[in-house]
Amino acid sequence: MAQWDFSSVLANSDALLVGAVGTLRIFAICLVAGLGLGLLIGLGRYSRRRVFYWPATAFVEFFRNTPVLVQIVWFYFALPILAPFTISPLAAAALGISLNSAAFSAEIYRGGIQSIERGQWDGARALGMSFLQAMRRIILPQALKRMTPALTNRAIEIFKMSTLASAVAYVELLQQAKLIASLNFNPIEAYTAVAVIFFVFLWPLVQLTYLLERRLARDE
């Protein structure tokens, strides 16, 4: 029976703190890039024009049907052979996670936009709004409200996917735990600590999203 001893983990708390900062950094990048790009691709999927629809569809199908881990590894190890530049672990991991999240959130945006009644379009167009004005002022604000639960789910996924960046040695929580475990021979404590840290970060956030969902439901 192994003895639980967290003193070696606590002794390396500064390393974990560096990892936590790395986790938050890649999370912030992927959240903004993934959900932002997802909106553009979702609009493309919604569009009836082929020049927008087909590239957006190809993008979604490609990134939905390939594993994120493979994408990250591919960007890090394969891309520099094909293209004349090197790529940092952060860039490779952020690319993989962002593009994957964009593909999934694009479908959320498309579904949300499609769920808005045709009468809202009629009301906006009858005032003389262009497609983009109607989308920005009338359709998206209502659709975003309906999409909030699905989008917050995506955000939580992104947060947890950040650990995949350890595959290319990006300094984040799991990578730091690996380091601590190999130096102190304490994998049980090191990896348990990472799981606990993630839980402590995410659990309050998830409770907050429940609260937000209830608020939004009440406003309907």
Binding site: G119, Q120, D122, G123, A126, P141, Q142, K145
Partner: peptide
């Protein structure tokens, strides 16, 4: 002006 009003609920 529409039968179903089509006001913007937000």
């Amino acid at each position: 002006v529409f039968q179903q009003f089509n006001l913007f609920p937000h």
